[in-house]
Simulated assay, not measured.
Amino acid sequence: MDTDGVIAGYARIADWFLARRHAGEPPMERPYLEAVLAGVPAGGTVLDLGCGGGEPMAGFFCRHGRRVVGLDAAWPMLAAGRRRFPDMALVAADMRRLPFRGRFEAVVAWDSFFHLPYEDQRGMFPVFGELVAPGGLLLFTTGPAHGRSDGVMDGVRFAHYSLSAEEYGALLGRFGFTVALHRVEDTACGGHTVWLARKTAQGRTNGAKDA
């Protein structure tokens, strides 16, 4: 189900969105992407959930010698990505219904995961646990606290949902991650609340490190 019209909404604003995101190297997100890059060996594979047209996330990793699998459910976004990155593996699908399984050195869900309602977000953590290889990284954005907020892009309204920081921490620990970084409303990154977690073999819960 296309919850709250998110997929249809991104299809409607694709041209507007892509014109703003296809600007090459990402200035805001760079510190977080570099943290992921440092943990993915040359030739390693990054899964970008909600990749849009491939910029700036997937493109950043491609330009730094990593393989990328990009997934998005909005066809105009994905079509733009295929034109821009003809050699990238791009998959048309909803992250809640992945058509594949596998292990990746990193999984990124930047400004995509937070469109999922509460229960769908909870249901993604066992999927993250399966997708990220031991020692691999998970990077995602959320809201700063439990609740829903709505935003408007190019006249289209989008819903954003967030669990509490405590619940995210508990879910990560339950499915084998330790939190490496949790930054709330980073003013240097457009107010994003960012999580970076590492998959461990033991799966012990660990507290977040504020930075």
Score class of each variant (00 low, 15 high):
W75H: 06
T142Q: 00
R20K: 15
F128P: 02
R122N: 05
R101F: 01
W195T: 04
E130D: 11
E25V: 01
A14D: 11
A170G: 10
E167P: 02
G136W: 01
Y161P: 03
A109K: 02
R122D: 08
L49Y: 05
Y168M: 04
L78E: 08
R66N: 02
H182D: 04
L71W: 07
L171N: 10
L181G: 00
F85I: 05
L137I: 05
F114Q: 11
A165I: 00
E119I: 03
L49D: 02
M77F: 04
E119G: 00
F177Q: 04
M88C: 07
F177K: 04
R103W: 02
G176W: 08
A74Q: 11
F158H: 00
V152C: 03
G44A: 07
I7S: 12
P56G: 05
E29I: 00
L172F: 01
L138N: 04
G59Q: 00
R21C: 06
F114Y: 11
A58G: 14
A145Y: 13
L163C: 13
D210P: 10
R204W: 10
W195Q: 08
E34Q: 10
A165T: 03
F125W: 08
P27T: 01
G155K: 01
H182P: 06
G123Q: 12
V40N: 09
P126C: 12
H64M: 04
P27Y: 02
D15V: 12
V69N: 06
R148D: 15
V194W: 02
G53Y: 07
G9T: 04
V68E: 06
T178M: 12
S112Y: 05
A188S: 08
F113A: 02
R148G: 14
S149W: 08
R30M: 14
P41C: 14
H160N: 13
